[in-house]
Nucleic acid binder design. Sequence first.
DNA 1: TCCCTGCTTCCACTGGCCGGAACCGGGAGC
DNA 2: GCTCCCGGTTCCGGCCAGTGGAAGCAGGGA
Lengths: 263, 263
Amino acid sequence: MAGGSSEPGRSVTSKVLALLFAFESGRRSLSLSELAEAAHLPLSTTHRLVAELVDSGALARDPQGRLQLGIRLWELGQNAGRALRDTAHPFVQDLFSLTGETSHLAIREGHEVLYIDRVYGTKRVPRASRVGGRLPMHATAVGKVILAFEEEWVRDAYFHRHLEQPTAYTHINPVRLAEELAQIREQGYGTTAEEVRLGSASIAVPVFHTGSIGAGLGIVVLSSQAPTMLRHLPTLRGISAQIERATAHIPLETLRASAKIGG
Amino acid sequence: MAGGSSEPGRSVTSKVLALLFAFESGRRSLSLSELAEAAHLPLSTTHRLVAELVDSGALARDPQGRLQLGIRLWELGQNAGRALRDTAHPFVQDLFSLTGETSHLAIREGHEVLYIDRVYGTKRVPRASRVGGRLPMHATAVGKVILAFEEEWVRDAYFHRHLEQPTAYTHINPVRLAEELAQIREQGYGTTAEEVRLGSASIAVPVFHTGSIGAGLGIVVLSSQAPTMLRHLPTLRGISAQIERATAHIPLETLRASAKIGG
DNA sequence: TCCCTGCTTCCACTGGCCGGAACCGGGAGC
DNA sequence: GCTCCCGGTTCCGGCCAGTGGAAGCAGGGA
């Protein structure tokens, strides 16, 4: 049988990328058939391309023969995030050392917050965010802070969407959220309590760059400790100011590019 | 003009991967021409493929139009390393908290050590290793420790190669190195002093799994503090034992796969 | 104005890609 | 032991997506 009948015009490049990005779902390993389905490719095509990806180290097989992302891709990703970590990470580490609580830094990526860096110890806190992971903005403290200080059209666009509700405590009423954001702008920090995951609460402050919002810096605590987390506010503000000072000399464009790409 | 004349038989997949892996060199950004050269591809082919990679978010353009790895690839890489970090990272973080020194965990990948995790503060120590980065085994403390406890044929194979000499202090005499490794096996730890980079010293202990060497756990200090770094040995051994306990229940195969792939 | 360098566009040819179908292997059920 | 089933692997000839040399373009320096 001649090939190329179904879905013609799809480039090889897009197929290769579809195979790699199939792992974005968060699934650790996929069988060949699962991968083919996820990438919307015929099994035999998947088989052929996967063989080449495995050869090159982009994908790898686990002991059961299932497919995972290869170590070479992991290395590549680490390389990509290098510039970013080099500038921001020491501060996040400091925040953790000073507060003893899980500390993280996030930026806006489309309609979600993307966690750029995260420092945590052995203390067990219900965990929702992870480095390289995304969460809805309105459910997280860092996200609310970013949204609060974003330009108005970003907020408008955000509210004109369906708002997810990860837990029963997540605020999804646009009017109420708008009020909350106004308050965040006034007081200079935002909080969440069990809005993204039961059992954890969070507080965050904005990190500005040349006058506009650049990122959100926050800590996560057990929700039972939520009432006392405000005591960390001065520390958060101090570290935020340090980051602002350290990045002030970097042109906005470059910073955004390196925050988004890390190159 | 007909295409496909030079270097026929090269698959599109391999070209796409060559473009991505061109950034393994550590260069943060490349111009189109540089990328074409690094990937050994004609300029116009590069141009076309790059356009698609940029569209999909695998590559990105910085403000100057130069090419970098895209944030989506960074996210993917984070995803790949997830299982690994989830198990090992808290211990490395503990090691840092207890010693206050840059702490790292590495495994063997071929003839090099691959840094799997690393925790560091604002303290400035001349830095050679980074997460996702590789260094020669004979120049680093973690590498020597791993090599020392590896099976004999691994050591033999290693010495039958040209040994790099990053600094004037790097030991590259096979006989002397073999003696050093024997001593490491006896005393249960290894050190380096300015062998990988001037100004820094390091001490490391082995992490075993089901009787064989699994990883190396170490700290880095300023070389001026090298004489006192032995005081951290009990801490290193304690954390190493914790990691061994925490990973003992995981089958070796699975562990190796997840250490190497992180799925 | 001219040159040079790096990037973008063009286009006719063609060989690498395509994927349905056949085949294989091993585990579960009878 | 035989059969079924289900993932994975192999096969192969038609054909169109990919090809890359060459021409065109933009911009900056002399």
